[in-house]
Simulated assay, not measured.
Amino acid sequence: MKFTSKKDVWLSLILFGSIGYGTFLTISAFISGEVDMGESIFPMLLNIVFIIFISWLWFTTYYVLDEKELVIRCGPINKRIPYREIISAHKTWNPLSSPALSLKRINIKYQFGMALISPKDRDKFLSMLKERCPHADIKFN
């Protein structure tokens, strides 16, 4: 089953606000004549690349409870965690960098590390994970 990532409003404002502000500064400098076309091409291209990359992350972050593994997808990140390796999972507000677009997260500890994810429906995700990982310590609080 596929779970999309919960997306915090404040995060979207920061990400897309900074993109908009950078684009505004570049275009306004060009229009006002402070820089010529040659000087503004690099910042404009950099903005376009940044917009594409952030959009890629924003629209392709999801989690799949497959038959034998948990699949975490976020832009270029494609992590697969076999259920037999999952040790525990619990809700958290951990702000560490991760393939999660919200601070309402789930911390999944597995044999070789941990993953922080933010499915929209954390309770349903944990419930389904518990079914697939009866050996794991799954906490709902």
Rank of each mutant, 00 (worst) to 15 (best):
R105H: 04
I51S: 15
M44E: 01
K68C: 01
L129N: 08
L101F: 06
I87A: 04
C74W: 10
D121P: 12
S88H: 11
Y110D: 02
E69A: 11
K104S: 15
N47M: 10
L116D: 06
T92E: 05
T60H: 08
I77D: 03
L45D: 05
D123V: 06
R84K: 15
R84P: 00
T60G: 03
P76D: 01
I51Y: 12
S40F: 10
P82R: 14
V35D: 01
V64Q: 07
K109E: 13
S40I: 15
G38R: 12
S127P: 00
K109W: 03
V35K: 14
F59T: 02
A115R: 08
A89M: 08
P82D: 07
L70K: 07
A29G: 14
I54V: 11
L116S: 09
P99S: 04
W58P: 13
E69H: 10
N94K: 10
M128D: 13
M128P: 14
D66A: 04
T61A: 02
K109Y: 09
G113W: 09
T92V: 05
D123R: 08
I86K: 09
P76C: 01
F125L: 06
H90A: 05
S127E: 14
S88Y: 11
L103R: 10
A115G: 10
Y110A: 04
I72R: 05
S98N: 04
L70H: 06
I81L: 01
I52R: 05
V64D: 05
L103P: 00
F112P: 00
K120I: 06
W58A: 04
E34M: 12
E39T: 14
R105V: 02
F125S: 06
L57G: 08
D66K: 11
K109S: 12
E34G: 12
C74V: 00
G33W: 10
R122V: 08
I86E: 03
I72C: 03
M37N: 09
K91F: 08
L103Q: 07
E85R: 14
L57S: 01
Q111W: 04
L57E: 02
K91V: 00
K79S: 02
E69Q: 14
F125R: 09
G113M: 06
L129H: 09
K109D: 13
S97V: 08
F50S: 13
N107A: 12
K91L: 12
R84F: 06
L103N: 12
W56R: 04
N47T: 07
I51D: 02
A89K: 11
L46K: 05
Y83M: 06
N107Q: 14
G33C: 04
I81D: 01
S55H: 04
S127T: 15
R84A: 13
W93F: 13
E69S: 13
G113Q: 10
K68V: 02
I81Q: 02
I31W: 08
Y63K: 07
V64T: 13
I51T: 15
G38C: 00
N94A: 11
I108H: 09
D121H: 11
Y110N: 07
D123I: 05
W93M: 14
W56T: 03
I52E: 01
V64R: 09
F30Q: 11
T61R: 05
L103G: 02
S98K: 07
E67G: 09
S127W: 14
K68F: 06
E67L: 04
F112M: 11
W58L: 00
R105A: 05
L126W: 10
V35M: 07
F30H: 13
Q111V: 01
E67P: 12
